[in-house]
Design a protein around this nucleic acid. Sequence first.
DNA 1: GCATGTTTGTATGCAATATGAACAAACCTT
DNA 2: AAGGTTTGTTCATATTGCATACAAACATGC
Lengths: 412, 412
Amino acid sequence: MTKVVTAEVTSTKKREGSGMRNESLRNQNLATMLRLLHLEGPSSRANLGRRTGLTRSAIGGMVNDLASFGLVEESAPNRDGTPGRPSPIVEPVARRNVVIGADLMVDSIGVAVVGLGGSVLHSIRRDRPRNQQRPEESVGYVCQLIQKLRSDLDPATRIFGVGVAVPGLIAKGTQRVLLAPNLKWENVDIEGLFRPAIADLPLFVGNDADVGVLAESRRGAAAGKSHVLYLSCEVGVGAGVISGGPLLSGARGFGGEVGHLPVNPDGQRCGCGAVGCLETEIGERAMLRRAGWPPDGGRQAVDEVLQAAASGSSDVINALLDHSRWLSIGLTGLINIFDVEIVVLGGLLGRLFPFIGDAVADELAVRVLPALRDTPIVPSAIGEDATLIGASELVWDTVLSDTVLGPLGRQA
Amino acid sequence: MTKVVTAEVTSTKKREGSGMRNESLRNQNLATMLRLLHLEGPSSRANLGRRTGLTRSAIGGMVNDLASFGLVEESAPNRDGTPGRPSPIVEPVARRNVVIGADLMVDSIGVAVVGLGGSVLHSIRRDRPRNQQRPEESVGYVCQLIQKLRSDLDPATRIFGVGVAVPGLIAKGTQRVLLAPNLKWENVDIEGLFRPAIADLPLFVGNDADVGVLAESRRGAAAGKSHVLYLSCEVGVGAGVISGGPLLSGARGFGGEVGHLPVNPDGQRCGCGAVGCLETEIGERAMLRRAGWPPDGGRQAVDEVLQAAASGSSDVINALLDHSRWLSIGLTGLINIFDVEIVVLGGLLGRLFPFIGDAVADELAVRVLPALRDTPIVPSAIGEDATLIGASELVWDTVLSDTVLGPLGRQA
DNA sequence: GCATGTTTGTATGCAATATGAACAAACCTT
DNA sequence: AAGGTTTGTTCATATTGCATACAAACATGC
């Protein structure tokens, strides 16, 4: 069985106030250093010093601490021909420090073991029938996959937690799914369903679009950018936004519900009760309807439409261009509101991109505020694994925070 | 002449990296403590300890430091009948530590002296002719007012900087106004115009709606809330958003330009080139048009409409209700996107609130996502001074940051 | 091949800062 | 007036990063 250290970690007494103690300093520095390694990969000691502004002594002490706890390893310096003593490369130890990422999507279920540094060590994806699979069944199946992956892990591997992505509204704080229309779930206690299988591992649940933007902004099409909008369609439409800081989650955790941005006062009635929501115009059903397929055709119909477009059917392509107009209207508002550096289209929108990308760009060049017209629109670069990687980042964010890392280092 | 300390303050060499030195600790603690006093008013030492989680010794040392530099003063404890030694009250010294807030609005110009803690010590507001007043004239007039207020100040008063609110696009970093359609300004170097009059005082320029949300979320209708949307109309329409952190400013500083959220595909052409922007539906011109006044009637026409509504003209009131429908559509999208705790309506929207508030609430109860329907919509509580107070908060934010406060304390 | 210059890791003394314990001060209740 | 409670003050202590000096490991030039 794999070793679990999180019990001690989470049991550490929390600092209630905002004041910083003497040890907060070290915790924070450990956190920023390890986060740097996690996000940007291996780095020389000297480079870490330059990035953090800390002295060689301080870096040295911290690297030793982290190494003695098995979080980083030092390897031979790069021989790059510069003069001076070469600086050893510090790298995060992915194989011994992992989290588990999972997603419960409409058409499939995925589980992955993600190492420190963001590498996907193992992953499994299985089809999921769309018709009425109850939460217990789906989650139970995910738990089976998790057990399978865990049994293959080296027993010395530390598992820091489990992150789960769900296409629905997640209430902040509580790990409950309030509503997932396209899974036909309502008020599901995800944590309760997972807990028996994962014992006391920390669990984090996130919206699929929210974790999508985490993945794309850290490892995907928006890598390195700090202002990112990720717009995704998995039957429904959702967005995740990062605007210069952490993920925008809103007061109750419902931030980014752009699927219900009103775009067409003359549009169809939406499941939410309103009229002309973005989701009713650019969701899967709308796309199928415009292309001439039955709106409830599901995954198979979507594949057929995409194939027809790929093989050059002008009817379908024109329908998709018509479809894209509403996407452009929605994007216009979002770009004007958020002023991001880049927009990433995921899910169905990413798959449609080859056919509608140019049309969208043309529309935006007219509609968007002049100062924001150069905002690039790109398809997802990670694709199917985006939600798995994003869900794991949910866990890493907590592991790499000052409050968790400090106590860890002290145990070493 | 008032003393200026900011030269030394700003000249402090910046820490380039993200690592924390030993002194960062004290700086950060000083900053959080003084920010607490600034935002929540006087507080006992013991309470400060509870809020920050720091020990009595630490609080004592910091209070002494801040007091010896004249930033705080201790006064007699509250006799509230609890046992134990009473704890002296620590309060920010407003009269000796101030910033200057200014605004250049469409119809008026305002300047205020705002003390530490947020109190408006003195303020002046003057009408501004709407027709083509050039930037040099407007700014020059503001500078005159600033000089006047400064000459009345105690010479021992420290002025930490000047904050200016402008209804236009402000490019991040540079203190330039790229575009202010309703002032008819384009690419104006605000800093250059101010610099001769304010010498080396730090200057901060912000969008009027952005500073508006700062004011309302700290001292106004949304006091204490951390997720706030402030939607304001001053001829044009703008919004400021706070979502759990600092002001959302976007990648280039154009965040919150919700005036150009598309709401009506069949609407009128907007100045930005697009069609049916929120601004063309709920801006001043649209309101006047619907009420039957000339769209370019300006402030006088607006006053007349409001008076007609107040005296019960059902034609005007019905026109305003019609008007409010589009406001509701815009608000629906914004509420669904941002998931805020409260929405504050400012400027013209705040003045219209008595007539349309109920209608808007009714519309939103149908349109907004069910989970978000309880989001309260309220009018601005600060009113005319919101931009002045908000502009000053722009300066205070910098003063109360760890990077500025540390060196200050060290001089004492 | 050796001397020189450059960059970096390591070791040691130092300064800054918050903690914790002991004590005194100032309030309440009885 | 006595006892209990809460808080400010003082001082020794632990933690942490910095500065300096020195050694190690590279490149370059003669």
